[in-house]
């Protein structure tokens, strides 16, 4: 009995010794900031009240949600963010699917193509922005190529599309790698069987490949939503704090404005906690869907179970 307790103690001690750095790190640099931000969001902590801040309850949240005079961009920035997500997520998925399918069609130079597509993923973000900023300028590469004269980044109708394009361009390499590995896990026997049945390339793609990589598509959907809601840093790099084109005023860009220009840290914290709630909801839906899948996804997965099983954990 006593030996058992001792062993248990030792086991616990070993376990905690392994995660001790994590606990220290987590408490100081994750938990504490989260709590501090939460507390700040219920105060009026700002440049104006650095030392004499007081608790204001839910006022910051209520003001954000209801005071459309003070925060006219709050809801519209969410709309802009949605629009950005609509532009990027489906395009990301479709492009990844198509390009991976092409790479997976037993061609030569697969490695070369993968490498080339992956280069933006290993390029420093600021450098990519410098590059695109110059290429998209009225006298830049794009206008030179097409003989046009458009200030893409400062034109209300093109700016957001351009940011979406930059993000799709930058993410393609990584997305293709993930999608391709999912495709490679589909049992080749299924393709052979389909070929015998006389299925063409398009049919094979639609009836075998796509259902087989459905979990990966779902993964892209969720991560795309989560990262899409956090878009804003790119705009900050290009435009700075204030010179803004309305159509790229995303939620997080507005958050940066509140934090960096208005120096209203309390409202900024409230905004980031609201963002947290949005992401939380998406994640919960994701868990929900994964654990008790809606019928249509379940059906797709059942149909191509063998191909799907390996990638399901993603």
């Amino acid at each position: 009995m006593k030996a058992q307790t001792k062993q248990k103690l030792k086991r616990n001690a070993t376990g905690y010794a392994f995660i001790l750095p994590l606990i220290l790190y987590f408490v100081v640099f994750q938990l504490a900031p989260m709590l501090i931000a939460l507390v700040i969001s219920f105060t009026n902590y700002s440049l104006e009240h650095l030392t004499d801040y007081t608790f204001v309850g839910f006022e910051n949240f209520i003001e954000l949600f209801t005071n459309s005079v003070k925060y006219p961009m709050f809801w519209s920035s969410l709309k802009t963010t949605f629009f950005y997500i609509l532009l990027t997520v489906p395009a990301n998925i479709i492009l990844a699917l198509v390009v991976s399918a092409l790479l997976n069609s037993k061609i030569k130079g697969e490695k070369f193509f993968k490498t080339v597509f992956y280069i933006p993923s290993v390029t420093v973000g600021v450098a990519i922005m410098v590059m695109w900023q110059q290429m998209l300028a009225p006298d830049g590469l794009i206008n030179q190529l097409f003989g046009t004269n458009v200030d893409f980044l400062n034109n209300e109708s093109t700016a957001l599309v351009v940011f979406a394009f930059m993000s799709i361009w930058g993410g393609l390499g990584y997305n293709v790698l993930i999608m391709l590995s999912a495709m490679k896990n589909i049992d080749p026997a299924m393709y052979e069987a389909a070929e015998i049945d006389g299925a063409g390339a398009v049919q094979k793609f639609l009836y075998i490949t796509v259902p087989g990589v459905m979990p990966t598509v779902f993964f892209f959907l969720v991560t795309g939503l989560i990262s899409g809601f956090q878009v804003g840093e790119q705009m900050l790099i290009i435009y700075g704090d204030t010179t803004m084109v309305q159509s790229v005023y995303t939620y997080v860009y507005g958050l940066y404005y509140t934090m960096r220009r208005s120096c209203d840290y309390a409202t900024a914290s409230a905004m980031s906690y609201f963002l947290f709630v949005i992401i939380l909801i998406i994640t919960l839906i994701q868990f929900r869907v994964q654990n008790g899948r809606p019928k249509f996804i379940q059906k797709l997965i059942d149909r191509r179970k063998k191909g799907g099983e390996l990638v399901e954990k993603v």
Binding site: G15, F26, P33, M34, Y256, M259, S272, F276, T283
Partner: peptide, 26 residues
């Protein structure tokens, strides 16, 4: 295997959902 392993892990996972911008000022 140690006491509270899964709870600690879950709390950590939970923090993954917090957007990075929350943390900047704190």
């Amino acid at each position: 295997k140690f006491f509270g392993r899964n709870s600690v892990f879950r709390v950590c996972l939970f923090s993954m959902m917090v957007p990075g911008t929350v943390m900047l000022v704190p």
